[in-house]
Amino acid sequence: MTLNVLFAAQPKSWAEYEAPLRSAFAKAGIDAVLSTDIAPADVDYIVYAPNGPVTDFTPFTKLKAVLSLWAGVETMVHNPTLTAPLCRMVDHGLTESMVEWVTGHVLRYHLDMDRFVAGQDGVWRAGTAAPLARDRKVCVLGLGVLGAGCAQALARLNFDVHGWARGPKTVDGVTCHHGEDGLKDALRDADMVALLLPDTAATENVLNAERMALMRRGGFVVNPGRGPLIDDAALIAALDGGQLAHATLDVFRVEPLPEDHPFWAHPKVTVTPHIAAETKATTASEVIAENIVLGEAGQPFVHVVDRAAGY
């Protein structure tokens, strides 16, 4: 049976994904019409991005699943017209990128690289070398695929890695915490915190003034997760007061970050323009093909979103 797969995303994404998707379908033995223009009543699967043309799923009467190109699903999870399974993108290529970005910035802070890179002015800045990684506590908030990958990479470098999730988790090489008391334990005396939680009502402002105060004074924050995870005003206050030494932020409540936002001019903030990790067309296409194969075999889809939890 020939399947009808609608690609519902931006035109530039179609140009990027068409060939990889066709290749992944062929390798997986999927017989499908893949197009940006299929009558809704004929569509079996939608390859989807929330900035694309589809917002009302009511006409898609035989829809088997919506396969998101995005890791974040907060803008689509509460759509009342979407009753078919929604599968978020868990792309191993994206995970690799995130691990590289987080590891790079943790090492940058650990080795005090900013001080030496900025100091190429003929001044010999004598000082002590960095401690061993084993003497630095790094806290990773969020132990999903991305968070666990980053935590394990840092643990392999011998950092003392503590991770936190809302529920119990086990990650090799990582001291795992959960619940409110566990969050305090994970953050207490942390030299660095990396945020990799989803954006939900339960995670908004998870890093607030009270929790920043638990960190070791002069600590560092990296946020490639979601902008609302941090209380912006509390972060600036912690930087100005010396509780935190620096923050590197890749995600924000409003993107692009407005030109007049205080983060741009703050000497203790590094802004990167949401480039920590992105879905890779080749590997993401393989994930989509895998889910279609599972669906057609009557098997459970992978990476199905829990609507109640929001991710």
Rank of each mutant, 00 (worst) to 15 (best):
V174D: 05
T283W: 09
A209C: 09
D185G: 01
N4P: 05
D91Y: 14
R156I: 03
V302W: 06
L235F: 05
A297Q: 15
A133K: 08
T58G: 04
T83S: 05
D112P: 07
E259R: 15
A233M: 04
R115H: 10
L187R: 07
A297K: 13
E259A: 14
F252C: 04
D44Q: 13
K169N: 09
F57H: 14
V54R: 01
A84Q: 09
L157C: 04
E100K: 03
N158Q: 08
W124M: 07
L21A: 03
L294E: 04
C87V: 08
G167L: 05
V206F: 01
G225L: 05
R188Y: 14
A126C: 13
G142A: 11
R22Q: 11
D135K: 09
H246I: 09
P131K: 13
L141N: 06
T61H: 02
E74R: 11
H78T: 08
A245T: 14
L86D: 00
A186Y: 01
P228D: 05
H178P: 12
A245G: 10
S68M: 04
R108T: 12
A39K: 13
V102P: 10
F25I: 04
A32K: 07
L187Q: 11
V222A: 02
A202V: 03
G122K: 13
P262N: 00
M76R: 11
H178G: 06
P198L: 07
T55P: 02
R211L: 05
L132Y: 15
R125L: 14
D121Y: 09
P168H: 15
W70M: 15
P168I: 15
A202C: 08
N223P: 01
D240H: 08
H162A: 13
D231A: 04
H178V: 07
K12S: 14
R166D: 09
S68L: 02
D189Y: 06
V77T: 07
F57Y: 12
A201N: 09
A65T: 00
I236P: 13
P59I: 01
V66C: 03
T103R: 10
P85A: 04
W101G: 03
K280L: 07
R125A: 08
H110Y: 11
A151C: 02
V43T: 12
T272L: 04
P11W: 08
A190E: 03
T58C: 12
I46R: 06
A49F: 15
M192F: 15
T279E: 04
I236W: 13
G147V: 13
H261K: 04
T83K: 05
G241E: 11
E74Y: 07
N205M: 00
V33I: 13
A32Y: 06
G310A: 00
R226Q: 01
P258M: 14
A28E: 00
R226P: 01
A213E: 10
V174C: 14
L132M: 15
H303C: 15
L146I: 12
T203I: 08
P262M: 02
E290Q: 13
P256L: 11
V206Q: 01
A201S: 10
T270A: 02
A41G: 11
A202R: 07
F252A: 12
A65R: 01
E286A: 02
